[in-house]
Write a protein that binds this DNA or RNA. Structure first.
Lengths: 178, 178
DNA sequence: GGGGCCGGTCAACAACCGTAGAATGACCAG
DNA sequence: CTGGTCATTCTACGGTTGTTGACCGGCCCC
């Protein structure tokens, strides 16, 4: 329910009703709504494979990122959707999210050889989130029903331009850029 | 306040207090909270330049997209942040957003020459949203304070691989992909 | 058989919400 | 002076929310 409705619209009474149970019982077990959310949103480490990254450079981290994204594209990752959807309105969720995302960000950063590695890592992370949000939360356009493979294949060159410093073939920028 | 707190946590009483005014007055002028939100969230067409796109193919739409993103990276676009933040919990905001985003999506689609143009357009849109969300709503990593120019320059090759069917130089996929 | 834990319900509280409507007062036309 | 419009406030209603604490019925152990 947190994943579908967000933090505020998920009421303890509704949770209890869905469980066929009295609201007091939910309080008895979880004490507080915030705590219930925390327990419901314990991330099963689905943002990145929990283990450390292989030492390799940009090319390898691209594959790691793509693999982790792919795993999040099959079946709704409800726990992280709960965090994701509530993050924008619940400060506890925001904190929890930041705490989970930052070490991963710096891990990605160290795998990118360029000087602006931090920004590149942030952009990679932003793309992953954008895709997940648009697919599951907004259900917008083709992204909502495309196959994971299609998405991954289209994203791969995109990620490579970010994770390695190489430019795509057609020059750096078109002459008449505006 | 809608942009900062989202729809549910923004109370009419708080809005009134911030305006140094009684809550009844807000009701008198806006009738209902939903209506107040609608008025506050009237998009000043900051998703894409309202005019039609130049007829050109993939290369041009990349520049249009980048320009529109760039304009959203200078100074917080509060109105669209309000929609963006509330969209995930308020169904009216979701509807409003979808209505604004879909025609733009199809516009982008027609500018992309490949067969999977729809999915590519969705991905481009997802990236834009991911960047905005991560910069303004999550305030995560370097993206929060990087200059618009930096971001645009890094994104350009990324967008080009999506809007045109071209691949970056270093082969399609690494041999040891896992 | 009695006593204590434990899963569970019930009723109630205080706070807050969106909203409605009556009341007040300033301002201005006639 | 009068009457009407308008901006504004006050008070209040009904509903919902998170949370609390008293109560109840099995179950197990002694």
């Amino acid at each position: 329910m947190f994943a579908e409705l967000g933090y505020e619209r998920t009421t303890i009474r509704a949770v209890a009703r869905a469980a066929g149970v009295d609201a007091g019982l939910v309080m008895h077990y979880y004490g507080t709504k915030d705590n219930l959310f925390s327990r419901a949103a314990e991330l099963p480490a689905d943002d990145l494979p929990a283990g450390d990254l292989p030492g390799g450079g940009g090319e390898e981290i691209v594959e790691v990122l793509l693999a982790s994204l792919a795993s999040r594209l099959v079946g709704e990752p409800v726990a992280s959707l709960a965090v994701l959807r509530s993050m924008l309105t619940n400060s506890d969720a925001a904190e929890r999210y930041r705490a989970a995302a930052e070490p991963q960000l710096s891990q990605i950063t160290t795998a990118i050889p360029t000087e602006d590695a931090e920004l590149r890592a942030s952009l990679l992370s932003a793309i992953v989130h954008g895709v997940i949000i648009e697919r599951y939360l907004l259900r917008l356009g083709r992204l909502a029903d495309a196959s994971p493979e299609e998405i991954i294949e289209l994203l791969r060159p995109c990620f490579q331009t970010l994770a390695t410093a190489e430019m795509p073939p057609s020059s750096v920028r078109p002459a008449g850029a505006r």
